[in-house]
Nucleic acid binder design. Structure first.
Lengths: 209, 209
DNA sequence: GTTAGCATGTAAGGAGTTACATGATTTT
DNA sequence: AAAATCATGTAACTCCTTACATGCTAAC
């Protein structure tokens, strides 16, 4: 399982929810958004074929009407279709392990504003549980191999474990905040900054499970 | 240029320095050693072809003499050759950017015990510089997009930056320890900080600006 | 007048995954 | 009797990267 391919798809869908974009700008945003921004960058060799594929499966539409402002070339502007919006909600609601994997979690989290609170909470809690399971295993490994493993190897292991512990604390804070927001639902004094762009408050499918 | 391909090669070479191993056991150690241990595991579809390739290029040798103890199958025991040892030292000494990439850094660090202090220091400092460059860029991005980015996206960004800052502090501690070890060469056996137990020094003040 | 940024793509290939194939032994 | 662990491999596939191809405009 653990489809990696969905990561770009989800990210593109999420970005296009805020408004239409062309490939070049999409890539720039993607690089900022994803871990790509730190170090690695997404190549055109990945992006453009992915866009073509999504276009073929009707998740997004191509619009060549607006000519490029800088160059004279037919700049292609992409928009989410209704099918794309459906798919986005489906992907965001995905409750299975895929939602807690390292690579897709970051993307999901970044687009939390476009998902209902129940789903946010479910993804956050699932992620935390997953990390705690890992921690248990990792700590067991550490204790078991500490005697024979050399200093550097076990120091690296220890550092990794500490990093996961830090993320668990972060998740716990977020979960608490999310719960607080859910409880005070009756008084919408502090809504999630939905950014106006996509006013698709209609039928978020809520929870599927 | 086979940048990523070196990670398994280096890890196998490093593990075999401690003694001969067969594929199955090698994979188990690799999973503990690398980030693979947390979550993902290395598949046989990667390992065995990689071993064959290394065998062809004389970095390791196959030994089918010892029969499998459990099954009757011809268990293949791998050993580092002299050429493999040379290659290992060469890879460990690699001062270029490859040595600071996320994926190869962890492996290099885990095998620091097999490298001289100068190389350890060089790799640690290179890594820290690289991370600090990233931080500068990431913080600039954060400041620039903070206005328009929504809460969740920027929170994720912030969390990532904080994680990198944490790693920089970790590296600085290690570098200081390494320098201390270099200066007092006559009296060795100064341990790497953090050996004594789970002393999580997570101070809440993490941001520097 | 050359570098940098805008803008869209294709071709070749690397690295790794899943699924498949085989079969023995130990544990449940 | 079934399941897990030991043990080695191959084939097909996916995702992504690098290098290439094209050409226009703004800035230095």
């Amino acid at each position: 399982m653990a489809r990696r391919g969905e990561s770009i798809e989800l990210a593109v869908l999420g970005l296009l929810h805020e408004g239409p974009l062309h490939g070049y700008e999409l890539r720039r945003r993607l690089n900022l958004l994803l871990g790509w921004g730190l170090g690695r960058v997404l190549s055109y060799g990945t992006l453009y074929p992915a866009l073509k594929k999504m276009s073929r499966s009707q998740l997004i539409s191509e619009d060549t009407s607006t000519p490029a402002p800088v160059t004279g070339r037919p700049r292609i502007v992409y928009r989410v279709t209704d099918l794309g919006r459906e798919e986005f909600q489906r992907l965001m609601s995905e409750a299975g392990p895929v939602a807690w994997e390292d690579d897709t979690f970051g993307i999901r989290f970044s687009f939390f504003a476009s998902a209902p609170s129940e789903i946010r909470l479910r993804v956050l809690e699932g992620r935390r549980t997953r990390l705690e399971e890992r921690l248990a295993r990792a700590r067991a490994d550490l204790a078991r191999t500490q005697r024979k493993a050399d200093r550097y190897a076990s120091e690296y292991h220890r550092h990794g474990v500490e990093g996961v512990e830090r993320e668990v604390r972060w998740l716990s804070d977020l979960i608490a905040a999310e719960r607080g927001r859910q409880e005070s639902r009756s008084s919408p004094a502090r809504p999630v900054p939905g950014q106006g762009g996509a006013s698709t408050t209609g039928s978020p499918e809520a929870t599927t499970g």
